[in-house]
Design a protein around this nucleic acid. Structure first.
Lengths: 246, 246
DNA sequence: CTGATTCGTGCAATACCGTGCAGTATCGTG
DNA sequence: CACGATACTGCACGGTATTGCACGAATCAG
């Protein structure tokens, strides 16, 4: 196995699992622990991860495990949520993606709103516990740990059976050229399916997502119905896409 | 589990629950109490929390009332959870019902346990967020509001596709004549399907459930593999059913 | 006041780290 | 092709970090 290949694998695995353990990696990749430690040291030197006793943890905030990034950008998320909540009209059927941004939105919905929410995120479902008039439909599947949403063919099928009015999507990046992106191929596939099942898609993007590109593409910007940001409309947003300033 | 990761987890949990109990954390994280105490001492040294007898409290006197909803059977549930947790062996596939009792159990599972959990409860799925080695499979369906679990034909089908080693069930009543009962017909049906999909069923019953009968029957006592209670074995429990005293 | 937890410290065992060194493979150049 | 330079890897070794256990002190509950 090539060295650079191994390093890429380490980073990919770190992204997926939220941590790296030197001992296990050495056994798994068939190299000595020294080599793994060397890799980790060098990657840490490039700022791509943080070295800790026993292995390594993510460096970039966007790679942090869910718990650690839960309250980042909290204020921006609150503003986005307040702006987007009125878009959900009574009687609508809405697909809601997982993630902290959409979680903030759900928390901002009026408790007496009567509508149907379809989600593959257990966290979103739990957050709707006290919205007595909201019909919650849970989409099942294997839970992808990094973002805590159901993935895989079962989840795909679950969304394919629905015709919704609105799709509220979270993304890793919104970029003029790469469009909407996220950090995992399975997640990207699910988000595509969700977009296809809804009449219109709304993306809520905190400032740290604007102009950023993740690894896995979801869709071009043109497929988007509306982009919601805290600031002014980005100049590169296609004319056909609506914009809402929070 | 990495040391620094464990400390982060402690802080995250402190933020969510408003307090930390050393004894429970040690059991849950699979380390000795000494280690937990050491962590708490060091975190306290950094001013990130305040050390108190038995555990720790937040450093800043902020949002305490968050998860302060102490229901009456909390102690019983904790005892049941600690007794049942060892029954879940590494490698097992376990069906987990919704409800506060099973939630307490999931919280008591060691974080480094490697197994598969299949559940129709979004709350259970969320509670397993930090169990990195647990494969969580979410069973979808329409969410039944009262108990916050997915119900209906889709959920039935989801469980029918599984062959599990263990089924951890919550019930409304355990009665010598009416057997296992619950308050909703759909819920009863799902629980029956879950029992049929697992090799053995374990029911955890707090004292307020013993000798009580709900409206909708799930199964006769004979179908049960084990009953776990805080006190002695009820005299009317069929001889074929095992009993565990918490 | 008394028994039961819980706490803190010292200690030993273990795991992990960094460095230096030697062997091997790969690369670039003549 | 020859040959030196460079990169990569594994091993050895001394040092550090972490962990669990033992034991006496402190604290809590009834």
């Amino acid at each position: 196995m090539l060295t650079s290949q191994r390093k890429s694998l380490l980073l990919a695995r770190l992204k997926g699992e939220g941590r790296l353990v030197a001992t296990m990696l050495a056994a798994e990749l068939g190299v000595s622990e020294d080599t793994i430690r060397r890799d980790l040291r060098e990657l840490a030197g490039e700022g791509l991860l943080v070295r800790v006793h026993g292995g390594a943890l993510p460096a970039s905030p966007t790679n942090l495990p869910l718990a650690r990034r839960r309250d980042m950008q909290a204020d921006a998320k609150r503003r986005l949520a307040l702006a987007v909540a009125p878009l959900v009209r009574p009687g609508m059927t809405v697909l809601v993606d997982g993630g902290t941004t959409t979680l903030a939105l759900v928390a901002a919905l009026p408790v007496d709103l009567r509508c149907t929410v379809v989600t593959h995120s257990p966290g979103i479902a739990v957050a709707l516990e006290h919205h007595a008039q909201v019909d919650v439909v849970l989409v099942g599947g294997r839970v992808f740990r990094h973002s805590m949403v159901a993935c895989g063919p079962e989840a795909q099928a679950g969304f394919q059976r629905v015709r919704a009015d609105l799709c509220l999507l979270g993304v890793t990046g919104v970029h003029p050229e790469t469009g909407l992106t996220t950090g995992d191929p399975d997640e990207a596939a699910i988000k595509r399916t969700m977009m296809a099942a809804a009449a219109e898609t709304v993306v809520m993007a905190t400032p740290d997502k604007i102009g950023v590109s993740g690894v896995w593409g979801i869709a071009a910007l043109g497929a988007l119905g509306m982009l919601v940001t805290v600031g002014a409309r980005p100049g590169w947003l296609p004319p056909g896409v609506a914009h809402l300033a929070a």
